[in-house]
Nucleic acid binder design. Sequence first.
DNA 1: TTAATATATGAACATATATTCAGGTATCAA
DNA 2: TTGATACCTGAATATATGTTCATATATTAA
Lengths: 101, 101
Amino acid sequence: MNTLNQSLNDETAISLAELFRTLGDSARIRILAALSDEEHNVSNLAALAGLSESATSHHLRHLRQMRLIKSRKEGRYVYYSLDDDHVKQLVSCGLEHVRHG
Amino acid sequence: MNTLNQSLNDETAISLAELFRTLGDSARIRILAALSDEEHNVSNLAALAGLSESATSHHLRHLRQMRLIKSRKEGRYVYYSLDDDHVKQLVSCGLEHVRHG
DNA sequence: TTAATATATGAACATATATTCAGGTATCAA
DNA sequence: TTGATACCTGAATATATGTTCATATATTAA
């Protein structure tokens, strides 16, 4: 078992920072929270997160590029969902710190 | 047990985003990694993280304000350490996603 | 076809943020 | 005291980033 310090070369630190930066926006957090229950299309997500559809679309692209969410197209609609349960775990882990802090 | 969506009101989403944004910088990640083994003073941290002492000091203040690290003064030196093991856990949780992703 | 809906995209703008620089305080040694 | 070391801080600057706006594509309905 390696220590955190041994595991974290510069390249890994950059990737890790990118991941956390992606989570570091309250709009994207609201989107992920909405997706933690069930999949939603863009319009729904925009309404749930209180964002314009354009802003939502930009955020969704960002989240997808970071492999936090995935999409599925059905007719005119594109349904987004969390990529896996690990995302939920990561957000929950942060939540614990916020509550306990 | 609440779902993520139920736990995350707007205020909580903002706090959570602030936490993740604090972790969303590779310099701060390197600092936290260095601190995961043992405490260090500012000059050491600057050298370990490859930063100027001024930049390091700015980052340390940020990390301390977010309660991720704590400090202890001894003579001319100020020693920093992780605030608790939960910080290490949070970083490790992100690391898993980076590796597995 | 035409019109409406759903989503995506790039440019522009405004704000946020990381770093440097200059200077400040505090501690210790000579 | 004087000088050196360790750390901190605010201003300035350069870069990053979120949102809006205009527009484009794709799908469906009429």
